[in-house]
């Protein structure tokens, strides 16, 4: 029996494993290869071209007519926007998610389950539709736009198609990913620790800083990962709320596979996005290790 067990196990696990490897793993390998090739004429890639790092260089320099390399900040600024939008989204989600999770943990059980369901539902509804809802709210002839312009004395304000609109959309899209892991921590929280802090003369601010936040660290770390990674690779939010001016990496990648028809360049940006993501994951792993050591 023990002799056949590994074989049976392989038969059970194999199909799913092969599906993911063939449809996710192999494509990613092809993508790394394509990122080294030149662009094609009929389809987006010339399979016969000599591999080079030209597509990665294009992210930083552009070639002049006589072949000299000039610094080109266009793509770097899009990379930079993606990183800081994702970082700002994560920071706002921590600041807002922490009090919400604390509040949820303090609710009586019945009400608490209702609130958990209310926070979970957006997670499962269509991301495109949820971002579209903000498009309706922020548009020029919308009520919010009208109210803001009535109150703002210094000329007309455009709420849509800028970085702030993207930030609002990203926070809206991913806030539940921060609230839920934080709540999972506070659910098991030993509230006597907080009482002890007060008994020892700590005020609320000090209790928050010295007791609640350190204990919430595992939730903050897990939530930051769940918010930062999808924000960095997001497409829909900037496509709808950023207009053509404010692009993120996902939109730049889509452009290379759409209008620009430059697959190798799109593949190179994708590789950079994956590399950034790995760096962040490694950074978070380090942060987690340090947080575990300090408690």
């Amino acid at each position: 029996m023990s002799g056949t067990a590994p074989l049976r196990r392989a038969g059970l696990v194999g199909p799913a494993l092969v599906t993911v490897l063939v449809l996710v793993g192999v494509p990613l390998c092809i993508m790394v290869w394509v990122s080294l090739l030149g662009r094609g004429t009929t389809i987006g890639v010339d399979w016969q071209s000599v591999p080079s790092l030209a597509n990665y260089a294009r992210l930083i320099w552009e070639e002049d007519f006589d072949g000299t390399l000039l610094f080109n900040p266009t793509y770097l600024s899009i990379l930079w926007r993606s990183v800081w939008q994702a970082a700002a989204t994560t920071a706002i989600c921590v600041l807002v998610g922490l009090p919400v999770a604390l509040w949820m943990a303090s609710l009586p059980r019945g009400l608490r389950n209702v609130v958990i369901l209310l926070v979970t539902i957006p997670f499962w509804t269509n991301l495109l539709v949820r971002n579209y809802a903000w498009l309706i709210i922020l548009r020029e002839d919308g009520a919010v736009s009208w109210a803001v312009n009535a109150l703002w004395p210094f000329g007309p304000v455009q709420l849509l198609y800028n970085d702030t609109a993207i930030l609002i959309g990203l926070v809206y899209s991913f806030l539940p990913f921060m609230i839920l892991p934080l709540y999972a921590v506070f659910e098991k929280f030993d509230w006597r620790l907080l009482e002890a802090a007060y008994d020892l003369g700590a005020n609320r601010w000090r209790a928050l800083r010295r007791v609640i936040i350190p204990l919430a660290m595992p939730g903050i770390i897990a939530g930051s990962m769940l918010v930062f990674i999808p924000s960095l690779g997001s497409f829909v939010t900037a496509a709808l709320l950023g207009g053509g001016k404010s692009m993120m990496m996902g939109n730049l990648i889509q452009m290379q596979f759409g209008q620009s028809r430059n697959w190798p360049f799109g593949a190179a940006i994708s590789v950079v996005l994956l590399a950034l993501m790995m760096l962040v994951l490694m950074g978070i792993a380090l942060w987690k290790k340090r947080a575990e050591q300090s408690t």
Partner: peptide
């Protein structure tokens, strides 16, 4: 490996599959 699609950016996997 089975859970990898959860964490990988969908736009990247989508264009890679297209290729």
């Amino acid at each position: 490996v089975l859970n990898a699609p959860l964490i990988l950016p969908e736009v990247v996997v989508a264009v890679a599959t297209l290729m």
